[in-house]
């Protein structure tokens, strides 16, 4: 018998914690689902789910609340990743948004509101999910720093910040009344660097958009936007230019700013991230809407 025991690295401890959280939900919730947005955080979350329940496939479906405006590369990886994990993939489009043709060019904040916030509520109600895993991290933004791992929502999906349960030790209280639901954030304690290191260590497949390559882009309102398909409305005088760019976060392509980069491999992406000097969410238009916007969106039911 050997006397040297392995020391758990920070990534292994984070991994164990996330797996523990996922298993608690599966043991206590009636009808859980994993929200899957195809980004790097979702990729890590899905990978952790596979580990948590192996050799069983994760005992819940994946849900993509789609806006129809994601990058084409994202749709491709989404379908592939779900199939590889042996999980059912549910895709939901808010029928009202679809009918009204809500889009990021004409409708500003309404686009996020109807497709994502409303769409998510409708999807959870449609399938009767009482627990939804989300890939939010506490290091993303000030209002997330105090978010619980198990976050309770009333029957109409409101988040009541005054009425959140204290979370001690590894004990999560998952009890709820009928109609109430919870959002669960298993990677709360991971930082952006942890996510990247883990993707590297575990060889997790991510969308190629995270790596730099020449892409057709325009510069608009301080953001470099990619012209991913013919729906992109060019303004007068705008001419798509090929730039070597990549994305630090992914969302709807007309709302997601790219960064000019030469990083074409994962280590290079991490290298750039470590040497960069601006915070991650700068590339997302949603946060610039108004002060404390995330807090407000969360109360309304946005993840």
């Amino acid at each position: 018998m050997t006397h040297t025991l392995p020391t758990l690295t920070h990534l292994r401890r984070l991994e164990a914690e996330s797996i523990h959280i996922m298993r608690e939900v599966v043991a206590e919730a009636e009808n859980p689902v994993m929200l899957y947005s195809v980004g790097k955080d979702s990729a890590v979350m899905l990978h952790l789910a596979k580990k948590a329940f192996f050799p069983s496939p994760p005992p819940f479906p994946l849900l993509h609340v789609d806006t129809t405006w994601k990058f084409r590369d994202m749709y491709a990886l989404r379908d592939k990743a779900a199939a590889q994990a042996g999980m059912e993939l549910l895709v939901y489009h808010n029928p009202e948004a679809l009918e009204k043709g809500i889009n990021p060019f004409d409708h500003g904040g309404l686009h996020t509101d109807m497709w994502k916030t409303e769409g998510l509520k409708q999807a959870l109600d449609k399938w009767g999910f009482d627990a939804a895993f989300g890939g939010a991290r506490r290091d993303e933004e000030k209002s997330r720093a105090k978010e619980r791992v198990f976050s309770f929502r009333s029957a109409n999906h409101r988040w009541d910040p005054k009425n959140q349960r204290p979370e001690l030790w590894r004990l999560y209280n998952a009890r709820k009344a009928k109609g109430e639901s919870m959002r669960v954030f298993p990677i709360s304690n991971w930082t952006e660097l942890d996510i990247w290191q883990y993707i590297h260590l575990e060889g997790i497949e991510i969308v190629p958009l995270y790596f730099s390559q020449p892409r057709p882009t325009v510069e608009r309102d301080g953001l470099i936007l990619m012209v991913d398909d013919e729906r992109f409305r060019l303004r007068d005088g705008e001419e798509p230019q090929m730039r070597s760019v990549r994305f630090r976060t992914l969302g709807c392509y007309p709302l997601t700013g790219a960064v000019e980069s030469r990083a074409t491999t994962l280590p290079e992406v991490i290298q750039e991230m470590l040497l960069t000097t601006t915070s991650e969410r700068q590339g997302r238009a949603i946060d610039h809407d108004q002060a404390a916007s995330m807090e407000k969106k969360k109360q309304e039911g946005y993840f």
């Binding site: 020391t7 758990l8 590297h200 260590l201 280590p267 290079e268 991490i270 290298q271 040497l275």
Partner: peptide
């Protein structure tokens, strides 16, 4: 980080928490 990112990543996989 700038000189040898691969070496850096290997070194940093052994952090504790």
């Amino acid at each position: 980080i700038a000189d040898d990112i691969d070496a850096y990543l290997v070194a940093h996989q052994h952090k504790t928490m």
